[in-house]
């Protein structure tokens, strides 16, 4: 199974993005500045937009899912229970996992934005996918919920998961890092070596690398272990 992005070019007024890359099974992180084209790239990979040039090849991939950054765009059910049903999922199980039990009859639009994101991600992560594209999955979530979603992402042991985000604090364990710099997708490589080349690395990780004690991965536990080792050796 692999996703191949070959000589993709996206152009808009005063802006362009060039992409080459091969994505193998595992968790990939794509970072980039505001307006760099993360969401556009996610939509092109999902097939919702066409590039000006280049091709997207999905080898051995049949089930593709795009989770857009705004959960409102996904809602089709008039109630929370019907929204779960629209995904073909068992509402009580999903609502229990999203800590929304008791809200079955409410309109999804009466939920807080964080609750709506929780509901949406619980549905998305419950479905089996070969290629899962998560556009800013952590926005609107509280700190505890971000950690829970990270755990859930790492429980998926099959397929390609690509996370498009500028999150700086909470991450799942990732296998490969990419970033958009000056209009190009840059391959930073596999973990943990990717951290040395990752220009958008959070400040805390940059500090640890400068102290020659880079974390093994991006989870909170990895970062705390590296920080404590730095503290002890310092």
């Amino acid at each position: 199974m692999k996703l191949v992005l070959d000589s993709l070019v996206v152009k808009r007024e005063g802006w362009s993005l060039s992409v080459n890359g091969t994505f193998l099974p595992g968790v990939h992180l794509v970072s980039g500045d505001v307006g760099s084209g993360k969401s556009t790239l996610a939509q092109i990979i999902a097939g919702f937009q066409k590039p000006a040039h280049g091709t997207v090849s999905r080898e051995g991939i049949s089930k593709v899912m795009l989770s857009m950054q705004h959960p409102e765009y996904h809602i089709t059910g008039l109630t929370v229970e019907k929204e779960c049903a629209s995904w073909g999922l068992n509402a009580p199980d999903i609502l229990a996992s999203a800590m929304l039990s008791g809200k079955e009859e409410e309109s999804p639009f009466t939920l807080s934005r964080g609750e709506l994101k929780r509901l949406h991600l619980a549905c998305v992560l419950e479905r089996a996918t070969d290629l899962l594209l998560l556009d800013e999955p952590f926005s609107s979530l509280d700190c505890a919920e971000k950690e829970r979603v990270c755990t859930r992402i790492n429980q998926k042991h099959y397929g390609i998961t690509i996370i498009f985000t500028h999150e700086q604090t909470t991450f799942p364990r990732v296998d490969h890092i990419w970033e958009i710099c000056q209009g190009c997708l840059v391959d930073c490589g596999d973990m943990p070596g990717a951290l040395e080349r990752w220009q958008h690395a959070p400040a805390r990780i940059q500090d640890l690398i400068r102290a020659h004690n880079g974390p093994r991965n991006l989870t909170t536990r990895d970062i705390l272990e590296a920080a404590w080792q730095t503290h002890e050796s310092g």
């Binding site: 970072s31 980039g32 500045d33 505001v34 950054q69 934005r113 800013e136 952590f138 926005s139 609107s140 500028h166 700086q168 958008h200 959070p202 400040a203």
Partner: peptide, 12 residues
């Protein structure tokens, strides 16, 4: 209201 949930490090 959570204005920073869609901002990168430099922007924030």
């Amino acid at each position: 209201d959570e204005y920073d949930s869609h901002l990168d490090m430099n922007c924030a």
